[in-house]
Design a protein around this nucleic acid. Sequence first.
DNA 1: TTGTAAGCGTTATCAT
DNA 2: ATGATAACGCTTACAA
Lengths: 345, 345
Amino acid sequence: MIRIRMHVEGPPMSRVPTSKDVARVAGVSQPTVSRALAGHPQVSPATRDRVRKVAEELGYVPLESGRALRRGRTRRIAVVASPDDLLDPCQPQLVVPLHQALTAAGYRTTLLAEAADTAVLAQVTDGSVDGVVLAAHSGSTVPRRLAASGVPHVLVNRLAPADGHPSCGADHRQGAAEIASVVAGLGHTEVALVLGPRRMRTSLDREAGFRGVLAGVRAVRTRVLRGGYDHATGVAAAQALLGAARRPTAILCASDTIALGVLHEARMRGVDVPGEVTVTGYDDVPMAGLEPYALTTVRHDPGRMAAEAVRLLLAQIGTDAPAAPESVVLPADVVLRGTHGPPRA
Amino acid sequence: MIRIRMHVEGPPMSRVPTSKDVARVAGVSQPTVSRALAGHPQVSPATRDRVRKVAEELGYVPLESGRALRRGRTRRIAVVASPDDLLDPCQPQLVVPLHQALTAAGYRTTLLAEAADTAVLAQVTDGSVDGVVLAAHSGSTVPRRLAASGVPHVLVNRLAPADGHPSCGADHRQGAAEIASVVAGLGHTEVALVLGPRRMRTSLDREAGFRGVLAGVRAVRTRVLRGGYDHATGVAAAQALLGAARRPTAILCASDTIALGVLHEARMRGVDVPGEVTVTGYDDVPMAGLEPYALTTVRHDPGRMAAEAVRLLLAQIGTDAPAAPESVVLPADVVLRGTHGPPRA
DNA sequence: TTGTAAGCGTTATCAT
DNA sequence: ATGATAACGCTTACAA
């Protein structure tokens, strides 16, 4: 590691200008500065222009803390993600579309990805944010306590828990059930599930969907492997499954990244997909649709989910009356591509 | 899409408590509440405990706007990323390690990923953040204007531009030069470069490193393809290159995701790697090291880069004297795995 | 050890 | 159309 130090001469370093400074220079009262810059219609065009010019020259920007204190709102929203979600770089991110939707609505984004509930709670109940988007897998007390504190919030990527929190999610249980039906309908009887971590609600939902269907089909034998939502899990699972004495004829994965890992390991071993084994994913990440994979999977729409969540959140903030909490359930649809087929006769 | 509305009865909805409320209930003056909760040693244990108990009961949390206004600091740092970086989910992210480093240091993270310089500037010069981490590819005016406003900042993932901004980056030019030397040393003469977008500084650095070496080797013919930093670019590039009349014997990619795309297309076509063609990546993303790829690439350390950047930033904030801006250059090292070899005789 | 007073910079109310 | 005044909630200096 190389360190470089550069010499700079001390700058004049004057104080950061306030509206008072602008007022003095422009020859008006301080509140007039505020009104002029806020574009109040009652300010005469002449003074408005003069004030704006002076503000520009001095490089004046209204201090956010002052505004927030006075107004009681910050136009800032916290996005609470779990550290895990953030770390896994190859799953459909919610944080980015959430940030975009918030930015579009004129809100700033404060990112929170801490483990401790209390740390999170302290940072969203101190008036520093106008609302909270909970994208974390918290089966935690945070939503309850937010409601108690009267902080507007929305749960995202979670089905309506019916306990009074607004939420937006995709019906992963149904999506998983659908693709399991497709696979079962093809006649597969030796089926393997490769699932994500138990603490993630989305993984549990998908598992429930898979199992709900497969348990109802006579003669289907199901085995289950568990790991992360990641590629390495898929590779490891495929090594175990494809090397086993009784190979499964279909491998249903809880995420596309897992499925891609399975696919790659299958190709490494010269196992034909879908000739010898059917592989399905979940999420429809961009890579899944590309030529070399053509993964059969389940599509949902994180962008739309984010937009709906933001809509639900802002609806609470706009009105003082906390209208009945609304929940939005988005569909999850099977996308048939090239990695499924009937079991080898 | 299904919408669900739930009925809730209007809660009592009392005002959010302030230190004044706590003071009244605890029977002390309002500043004593502040001192008690801040843990000032002069407060008697008895009143400290009483105040804390009341605060707890009322659910009092000091309002952040009030603190910030009074103290002149927010303990908040803005991370400015480019929307592109955020959107591409499969490249080594800086945002996550930056967030972690900031959290560890007791700072909150405000995420900014807007296109317009003016929008960014407005949000970081209004006193809402104590400092700025610039992770964006901005060849923009933002750093200059931040310096002019006296806002502490640090450039990250960029080599020291020697114009007085503290910065932290990896020497991608050197890393690229090194891997190009390896490939040239193997005797390759038909070399293709698959690069990222021109507007990204990291891509330009890597290009310069590649070209600097290859131009100096007699008899090397270089062709260049350009696209995004993503998988699809690699797939498309490989289609073009491997289908060409005169195939390259080595393909140097500006990112691992590109290289993985190339690898997959090569396997689809039954082109042996590294027997028929050498493929190298850049970044050493987790997937690159996995068995089925074993990609020869260049490693650098985004986590360490983030940590160093945060260190440099906080150093400016702690001290009033703006010490000489320091820059840190981290190494980028070749990782030899299984996708390189001599050209086929 | 604790209370009183002041002030951070802004916006809103009320005069004029 | 604009100025004077107040208040948002907090921390600090000073007084007691």
